[in-house]
Amino acid sequence: MRRAGRPAEPPSAAPGTAADGGLLVRARDLLVGYTGQPVSPPTTFAVVPGAATALVGLNGAGKTTVLKAVLGQLAPLGGELEVLGGPVDERSVAFRRAVASVLDVDVQLPGLTVREHLDLVARGHGVRDADDVVDQAVLDLGLEPVAENPATALSSGQRRRMLLAAALVRPRRLLVLDEPEQRLDLAGREDVVDRLVEEKEAGVGLLLATHDPLLLAEVADEVLLLSEDGVLPVTAAEAARELGR
């Protein structure tokens, strides 16, 4: 599955970013939910550079809600949560430059092609050699046939690839992904697996919620099953059996 060519130096490989060895996320007995009601059990986990932590569970187990708390989109109900060594502050420039994410939100800019959209994201984040970085993301995620098409003309799977590419053309130490396999065929999931493995090799830390056995087996270093009985560390194979995959 791995591509023969290595990507251009990713934004995350710059000095003082993903390679500094610091803990990226620390959650201890984290409670998350809505209107004061937890939707998941107390959750403890950590994300370190160069490794991937995967959250699995049935729909409604709270995986996405945990991700939203890490991203500062939702205040925790209890427990402890630190991102980049301190409280979550999604308004800070340092946080926004270090944390990239793809949730289940279909964002696109009318009037821009796929390549123009990615170029805007890269240049907006001050990426050097933006053209090369965008070209590599387009190649890695199989977007070459539609790179010059308007983003609004893409299929749902192509839009998902574009959103993933947008997270990969900007600086990042931490990459937070909510079911990145959604709406992708097998070839698309293999492309995502290849690129996420390369992200880890570059020192980026990954936190993802997924149901996909391929991502769990090939990408995840730690798998946590969220259920009514609590949070249990499991293997990728055990997670697949639990989820009926």
Rank of each mutant, 00 (worst) to 15 (best):
R183L: 09
L196M: 13
D191M: 10
D194S: 10
D191E: 13
E144I: 10
E228V: 08
Q182H: 00
A137F: 06
E228Q: 15
R128L: 15
K200F: 09
P213I: 13
V231N: 01
V121Q: 11
V197Q: 11
V133A: 01
L164N: 03
S156L: 03
P145F: 01
L177P: 02
V192N: 09
Q182V: 00
D140K: 09
T113R: 14
D194T: 07
P150A: 14
E190A: 15
V121K: 09
A153E: 15
G203W: 05
S155G: 11
G203T: 00
T152K: 09
V197K: 09
A187C: 02
D194A: 08
A187I: 02
E201M: 14
P213L: 10
V231F: 04
E201I: 14
R160S: 00
L184F: 01
D191K: 03
V121S: 09
L139P: 00
V138G: 10
P180I: 07
P213G: 08
A130H: 05
R170M: 06
L118E: 09
L109Y: 08
Q136V: 10
D185H: 00
P110A: 13
E199F: 08
L118F: 13
A187S: 02
G142Q: 03
R189L: 12
P150T: 14
D132I: 15
L225D: 14
P110H: 11
P110L: 15
A153R: 15
G126K: 12
E116T: 13
P171I: 02
Q182K: 03
D135I: 14
D178E: 05
E179K: 03
P150C: 08
R128P: 14
L109T: 14
E228F: 12
E218T: 15
D185P: 01
S156Y: 05
Q182A: 00
